[in-house]
């Protein structure tokens, strides 16, 4: 199974990034052979709808599960439509998060856990 982990860096020692749509990198991890690569998240520069664009990129890579800190409503809708399972609320090192997923210790999320614009760093992105 291919898993995407929102990450602060490019290695397995990086921390899971709390933001889905605006994280700098994703670690794309294949749990079948423990291989991984990193991709830069271009969508984090988006004017709006970063989570939507990120969700499409993730779905387009054949990812079946996402591990991240928080997912907003729009990104969640895209991931759900693509049949991608979401594990949110994770703040470990990427490698620990993968181990927990493999051990079945992560709980799937059935609803978005933050409102829109969580990851934009402003007070809601309105002004």
């Amino acid at each position: 199974m291919i898993v995407a982990i929102s990450s602060t860096g490019t290695s397995l020692e990086s921390k899971v990034d709390p933001r889905f749509g605006r994280c700098p990198f994703f670690i794309i991890y294949n749990t079948d052979d423990d291989s991984f690569e990193h991709v830069e998240n271009q969508a984090r520069q988006a004017m709006g709808g970063a989570g939507i664009q990120t969700g499409q990129m993730i779905a387009g890579r054949g990812v079946k599960a996402v591990i991240t800190g928080n997912v907003g409503p729009n990104a969640f809708r895209v991931l759900a439509a693509a049949g991608v399972k979401v594990y949110s609320g994770v703040s470990d090192q990427v490698s620990d998060a993968v181990q927990k997923l493999k051990a079945g210790e992560l709980q799937g999320t059935s609803a978005p856990d933050v409102s829109s614009h969580f990851g934009t760093g402003g007070g809601g992105g309105n002004n």
């Binding site: 939507i52 664009q53 439509a81």
Partner: peptide, 23 residues
């Protein structure tokens, strides 16, 4: 449509399209 939209108001996942009117 999805790749054209700068505001990501249109998403295409598989063969379905999702529209986000607020964007």
């Amino acid at each position: 449509c999805a790749s054209f939209c700068n505001y990501n108001a249109v998403a295409v996942v598989g063969d379905d399209v999702i529209f986000f009117p607020e964007l």
